[in-house]
């Protein structure tokens, strides 16, 4: 069915998207929390900043990342000394996917937090329950659907990431060539149509599976 290189692209895509999502949950949650709960005047600025990856062309985001993390740049050189390579590496793909999907995560969690009835926390304190227990037993379970929805959006967005990834990591088969990059690569070749079609179908299938999984996890108990 699939060639060795294509399998590598599938596994790499899954790895990158999962890592990006795992990073997104704590970062996105914390950011959303701060943006909805804080009265800090800086929050308006930060809210706009988190939207940048969503509105700026992905290739621009990737180009900016490359300017920061390329091995000949200050940060890139410093990280290289510690043995961490970001540009032209799968870690770079994670970084690009993470940044590109962060706005979706933050938005989803913010919507959940804005709809959440925060008087329930008052009710819990009003029964003598501490804030940490209240957070674990009341706040977090009630926000879970929003976090899950955000995770699925972030995962599918990260899974399909193209522009920023190709700018930061190029398209090295087996190293940075995720499915979208492999499809693009196949389309460039005269006999690649069948390969591109196969990968495109597979890509769609994985994304649909992720959505179905989240729907199932998020199902309301039947009454």
């Amino acid at each position: 069915m699939l060639t060795e290189v294509e399998w590598q692209a599938v596994w790499l895509s899954l790895k990158v998207a999962l890592w990006a999502t795992l990073l997104n949950v704590p970062v996105g949650f914390t950011l959303a929390w701060w943006l909805t709960r804080s009265r800090n005047p800086l929050r308006h600025l930060v809210r706009t900043l988190t939207l940048i990856p969503l509105v700026v062309p992905p290739i621009v985001t990737g180009y900016v990342l490359l300017m920061i993390f390329a091995p000949n740049q200050a940060l890139g050189t410093q990280l290289g000394k510690w043995g961490i390579q970001v540009a032209f590496d799968w870690k770079g793909a994670v970084l690009a996917s993470w940044l590109m999907s962060l706005p979706l995560m933050v938005r989803s969690v913010m919507v959940a937090m804005e709809q959440h009835d925060w008087r329930l926390e008052q009710a819990s304190y009003g029964l003598g329950i501490s804030p940490s227990v209240t957070f674990r037993k009341i706040t977090l379970p009630l926000l879970t659907p929003g976090i899950l929805a955000g995770s699925v959006l972030a995962f599918t967005r990260g899974f399909g990431e193209f522009g920023a990834t190709i700018a930061l990591c190029a398209s090295i088969p087996g190293q940075t060539q995720t499915i979208p990059l492999a499809i693009y690569n196949a389309m460039q070749q005269p006999d690649g149509d069948e390969r591109a079609m196969r990968l495109a179908l597979l890509c769609t299938l994985i994304a649909l599976t992720a959505v179905a999984l989240s729907e199932w996890l998020n199902r309301k108990p039947s009454t």
């Binding site: 008087r119 329930l120 009710a123 819990s124 304190y125 003598g128 329950i129 804030p131 009630l142």
Partner: peptide, 18 residues
Amino acid sequence: PTHQRDIAIVFQDSRLFP
């Protein structure tokens, strides 16, 4: 803080954990 006041409150709007 409320949770340290050794009180239990019944709110007018019940506020059960959904």
